[in-house]
Design a protein around this nucleic acid. Structure first.
Length: 430
RNA sequence: GUGAUUGUAGCUCAGUUGGUUAGAGCGCCAGGUUGUGGCCCUGGAGGCCGGGGGUUCGAGUCCCCUCAUUCACCCCA
């Protein structure tokens, strides 16, 4: 066993997998840009209070999942970010973004940290991409972020994802509903599990999330949030659904969808993948108009956003074999050296090729020709170029097509010419 | 934090009721082909059997502890 291993809940991403990440990230950047979102990068740690205020102290994330530390005895408590939205909102408020322009559309890709027990689809360090649309209170804003998210899934070729959506109403709606829930559940106090008992006081909405089979019947009979929405909230929700219908985005209304973070209001949504095991949420989001004030803003900031788990996304894509066509690009030419004393000469040639923008590989470990050829074959090089004493003397080098095994003798000048042409053609095919 | 699961070669895994020197496939390296890959053949390297303790004449195998893994609960991406 190695002396050191990766910290629990963290892992390494090796080249083959990194290529898949790059591919997905490329799509995210392209589509976010097409929808008019600009990238923002915020620090991986923030003052702990930001998350306590922003996410809500009753949430599990803040209650038990944060990596919190104190850099020095007098310093303020810091926390590795467990989600992105609070940091983005902080950045926007701190820099008065909304006074320079009333609307801001931001997206991000970044690493998050939560101290949970790892399991399938759950890591202590994980990544999300997401978008935040600030300064627009119209239902068109939520529809816009949902559309972008679904567009990413579609462009990646994902199938069978399920979008569930609900309205949590405005603050007053939720307050009234909260009371109704407390009235409903209180008589059954003895039946509730410990977690639900605690939520009864702090955040009764979250009882609805419970997967405890013993409670399902009771939960099914609970009052519906939808019945407590005021006309404006209903209208807002209907409009969001209208946009989704119009864009052919399939969804399912789920009146019990609540979501774990305190800052949501009005629309909330979640996307699940049936191929993920127990942790099947691949993305989610909603409207969070209350967050800015919670973070000390003197004005309201309407906000909508979503976040998608990269690992879960990649996992689902792998299950659906969406990376099969993603084959690594081998070198165009592999320089094969006959013997030790020619290495420097071969290196010179390799440099010339590379300076001509030709993807070139050469063995630096002085292995046998057979080993070099095997290597070239393994990394799927297109051509092998042989460098030996005769070649150096005559200036004619054999170039072997590794697919057809054809071999032709060329001067270095002709070689550069030919390979440059081939490289250009390869570029076009990509 | 709770429950279960699995730890044997780089990887995937065999290993009998406890019994000599712990195996296979793939991968890696070399040779067959002394200047040329894939396929084939031959050979080679590579193991504190997760760690510690115990039972036993004897432990990869049985018992206890511990560490790690994986899955699930809670919750979330």
């Amino acid at each position: 066993m190695p002396q050191y291993q990766a910290v629990k809940g963290t892992r390494d991403i090796f080249p083959e997998e990194a290529a898949r990440w790059k591919y997905v990230e490329g799509i995210v950047h392209a589509l976010a840009s097409r929808y008019g979102f600009s990238e923002i990068r915020t620090p991986v740690f923030e003052y702990t209070e930001l998350f306590q205020r922003g996410i809500g102290s009753t949430t599990d994330i803040v209650g038990k999942e944060m990596f919190t530390f104190q850099p020095d005895p007098k310093g303020r408590s810091l926390t590795l970010r467990p989600e992105m939205t609070a940091g983005v909102m902080r950045a926007a408020l701190q820099n008065n973004l909304l006074s320079s322009a009333p609307v801001h559309k931001l997206y991000y890709i970044g690493e998050l940290f939560r101290k949970e027990r790892p399991q399938a689809g759950r890591q202590r360090q994980f990544s999300q991409f997401g978008a935040e649309l600030l300064g627009v209170s119209s239902p068109a804003a939520v529809a816009e972020v949902i559309t972008l998210m679904m567009q990413v899934f579609q462009s990646l070729g994902l199938q069978g994802l399920k979008l569930r959506i609900n309205s949590l109403g405005d603050t007053d709606d939720r307050l009234r509903y909260r009371c109704a829930l407390q009235d409903y559940f209180s008589p059954f106090h003895d039946i509730l599990d410990d977690a639900s008992k605690e939520r009864l006081d702090k955040n009764p909405l979250r009882i609805l999330d419970s997967k405890n089979p013993a409670l399902q019947e009771l939960i099914a009979g609970a009052p519906k949030l939808y019945d407590y929405l005021n006309p404006a909230s209903v209208q807002d929700f209907e409009k969001v659904l209208y946009y989704l219908d119009e864009r052919n985005i399939a969804y399912e209304i789920d009146y019990r969808l609540v979501r774990g973070l305190d800052y949501y209001c009005n629309t909330a949504f979640e996307v699940t993948s049936s191929e993920l095991g127990a942790q099947d949420a691949i993305g989610g989001g909603g409207r969070y108009d209350g967050l800015a004030r919670e973070l000390g803003s003197s004005t309201d900031v309407a906000a909508s956003g979503f976040a998608v788990g990269m690992e879960r996304l990649l996992m689902t894509m792998e299950k659906q074999r969406l990376f099969d066509a993603l084959v690594p690009q081998g070198p165009l030419v592999y320089v094969v050296v006959q013997q030790q004393d020619l290495v420097d000469h071969a290196l010179q040639i390799a440099c010339r090729l590379r300076n001509a923008a030709i993807k070139t590989e050469i063995d630096l470990a002085s292995r046998s020709m057979k080993a070099q050829m095997r290597d070239a074959n393994r990394m799927m090089a297109s051509y092998a170029l042989f460098v030996g004493t005769t070649e150096r003397a005559t200036g004619l080098y054999p170039l072997k097509n590794l697919l057809t095994s054809e071999q032709t003798m060329l001067t270095l000048e002709d070689l550069l010419e030919l390979l440059r042409e081939l490289a250009a053609r390869e570029q076009l095919q990509l």
